[in-house]
């Protein structure tokens, strides 16, 4: 069976403020979707809501992964079902070594029933795999011993996200502006890395403002968010239109959503 991530009429509040106002989206394994939209249109909010951030409350609608309702599940349970979010702004965790963290993470993801304190994936196997994946992302192995994201440059943090993606092999990956803040070589490594990782087994949603990542990983679908909704869905040519012409035409085609977007901005500023 092909895996399916199904988002239906999703409404999400952030601290009482409605941000998402009815998002509908289906991503199947093997598909690449591009999610675009102006700053503040709700892309990251959707990503966080899918991953289960406690501050993002679903007020209406559902998220399902292969038929399982995710609404009430905590972030760990969602991850164990196969959801992965590469963060736009990865968090620093002082004193926690990358390798240590990753070993716990993959132990849980590969054995979703694992309880804390139970065995971890064998060290030898884990090291070998980590070394390989780091190699293919052109990361120095020394990163495995560093504290998670502490003192990492912006680009290094993004690469660390992709490394985690590579190690965890989720069913669905959401990449929130993983290409931002990378120099052009890094964009290439990340893009190529992603190309290697994706395949018929993985569904991907790429949130981006740039072209490069999409050139390496050509989406079958492109969606545009505005005012907390997906206002248009097309193919890669929609993404190209936005890159070339910006959002003006889109705003004109969807005046209501454009107005709502401005409202949200007014409230939150």
């Amino acid at each position: 069976m092909t895996s399916l991530l199904k988002i239906e009429n999703l409404h999400v509040n952030v601290e009482e403020t409605p941000i998402l106002k009815g998002v509908n989206l289906e991503v199947k394994a093997g598909e690449i979707h591009a999610l675009m939209g102006e700053n503040g249109s709700g892309k990251s909010t959707l990503a966080y809501a899918l991953a289960g951030h406690p501050k993002y409350t679903i007020t209406e609608g559902t998220v399902e992964l292969d038929g399982a309702n995710l609404n009430e599940l905590d972030p760990s349970e969602r991850a164990r079902l196969g959801l992965f979010l590469a963060f736009q702004y990865p968090v620093t965790i002082p004193g926690v070594k990358v390798a240590d963290f990753l070993r716990h993470a993959i132990s849980n993801i590969r054995n979703p029933d694992r309880k804390e304190g139970e065995g971890l994936v064998p060290m030898r196997e884990f090291r070998k795999e980590l070394k390989e994946q780091m190699g293919s992302l052109d990361m120095k192995t020394e990163f495995a011993r560093r504290y998670l994201n502490e003192g990492f440059s912006g680009g290094e943090k993004k690469r660390m996200e992709i490394l985690q993606l590579a190690m965890l092999k989720p069913k669905f990956a959401i990449l929130d502006e993983t290409d931002s803040g990378l120099d052009s070589d890094a964009v290439r490594f990340v893009s190529e890395g992603l190309t290697k990782l994706t395949g018929p087994e993985m569904g991907v949603m790429i949130i981006t403002h740039h072209e490069r990542l999409l050139q390496y990983n050509i989406p079958q679908y492109a969606h545009v968010m505005m005012g907390g909704r997906i206002v248009e869905t097309g193919d890669v040519s929609l993404a190209e239109e936005i890159h070339n012409e910006g959002y003006t035409a889109l705003r004109e085609r969807h005046p209501e959503a454009a107005a709502e977007q401005e409202q949200v901005e007014a409230v939150t500023q």
Partner: peptide, 17 residues
Amino acid sequence: FYLMSRGLSEVEASSMI
């Protein structure tokens, strides 16, 4: 949230922090 989104349980995540 970050650690839990990688599959760590709440207990595991807090003790790691």
